[in-house]
Computed example of a mutant assay.
Amino acid sequence: MAKTIVVKQVGSPIRRPKIQRQTLIGLGLNKMHRERELEDTPSVRGMVRSIPHLVKIIEERG
């Protein structure tokens, strides 16, 4: 079974650069307080690391 992480959006993309909004959409998030379970890959970790003020890792599974 693959390792996964649960990511929650905690910040609003309003008045943020376009690339940060696109990163949120790439993670499958687009509204406040939504959570997604994503595969724990280097690309997903990099996306989360690029917008730490907008998302939070809630849980690591696996």
Score class of each variant (00 low, 15 high):
R49P: 00
L54I: 03
S43C: 02
Q22F: 04
Q9F: 05
H53M: 05
P42K: 02
E60A: 08
N30F: 04
G11L: 06
K3N: 12
Q9M: 15
S12L: 10
N30Y: 06
R34S: 11
G46R: 08
I51F: 03
S12F: 05
K3M: 08
S12T: 14
S43I: 03
S50D: 12
R15K: 15
E37I: 07
E60F: 01
S50W: 08
L29Q: 07
M47T: 02
E39A: 14
Q9T: 06
S12E: 05
E35Y: 11
D40F: 03
I5P: 01
I25F: 10
V7G: 03
I19A: 13
R45H: 03
Q9R: 12
I57C: 04
I5M: 13
T41W: 07
I19V: 08
K18P: 02
D40H: 05
E39V: 15
L29P: 04
S50G: 07
K3C: 05
E59L: 12
Q22T: 06
D40W: 04
K31N: 01
R49C: 01
R45A: 10
H53G: 01
R36K: 15
R61S: 13
T4R: 12
M47P: 00
N30P: 00
T41S: 15
K18F: 00
M32K: 13
Q20V: 01
Q20F: 10
T23A: 13
P17L: 10
A2V: 13
L27A: 09
H33C: 07
V44S: 01
I25W: 09
V55P: 00
Q9W: 11
A2H: 07
V48I: 15
G28A: 06
L29F: 02
D40A: 10
T41C: 05
M32T: 03
G28P: 00
L38F: 06
Q22L: 13
P52Y: 06
K56Y: 09
R21N: 08
I51W: 08
R61T: 11
M47C: 01
Q9A: 02
D40P: 01
L29V: 04
G26N: 09
V48K: 05
L54V: 01
A2S: 12
R36E: 15
V44E: 07
P42W: 00
S50I: 08
V6L: 08
P17D: 13
P17A: 10
I25N: 10
V7C: 07
